[in-house]
Amino acid sequence: MARILGGITTSHIPAVGNAIANKMFDDPYWKPFFDAYPPIHEWLAKVKPDVVVNIYNDHGLGFFLDQMPTFAIGAAHEYHNEDEGWGLKPLPPFQGDARMSWHIIEGMVADEFDITSCQELAVDHGFTVPMQLFWPGLGDNPDIPRAIPISANTVQHPIPTLKRALDFGKSLGKAIRSYPDDIKVVVLGTGGLSHQLDGERAGFINREFDEMCMEKIVTDPESLTSISRHELVEKAGAQGTEFLMWMMMRGALTEKVNVLNQNYHIPISNTGAGTMLMECVD
């Protein structure tokens, strides 16, 4: 049966992709951010997951407002990025695991989560930046796992509640663990933490709230479900709602987890950047 080894969180800011392309790892601005990643590389090299479930939020590449799924799961054999309007370079295609995607979709719909399935899905920086961060070299990296993208709507309100996000993760975890193949899986929760790009409050960052979220997501994620969506916007900023991805990831892990690595740094671009590696404790 499939096993979930752990979960990893990271911000997925587009500027990180540029910094990687320009090898800014030792640049004074970037070093406090990139220093969080080598210990995660070591862990991944040791445990060698076969599949990564990459939970992110599409930012207007894969989906438009004409049809906006609350929860969408990729079921393609491979995934491609696009230039997103900024002239981003094409990356090598990401190999999917369509058979496992369908198993997850079957399992979660049976569990009463109504999923949008996507046999084609253009993946944006929310998906690609974490892949670049965790598996440097991408296509040239022999350890890169097969990927299953999951996107939740944070573009347009109403967005899912924090409780729904955590429950989604629990159902996702059940579906993964019921997969008959003897494979190892890691789950990514990408995005966040606090930031706001739009309005007169642009540039808002909230260290205190972010640090509380990073603590509670380990010890007591249920307690975070009492935060309303409105409060989340107020405390984390309009785009800090990406914390929902962290909740979805956390739900898929075991109740108890060991934190093997964590980092928090302000600012990366306009964002409080949080990185965490949590190992499941069976």
């Binding site: 590449l61 407002l65 309007g85 739009d198 309009a238």
Partner: peptide, 28 residues
């Protein structure tokens, strides 16, 4: 929330044409 516009159904209706144009800019 001061300085913040919640992009909800009202705004989604109001801005559909503008956002659709901007979405098209995904293509060079």
């Amino acid at each position: 929330i001061p300085g913040t516009t919640l992009f909800d159904g009202e705004m989604a209706m109001k801005g559909y044409a503008l956002n659709k144009m901007c979405y098209s800019f995904n293509g060079a």
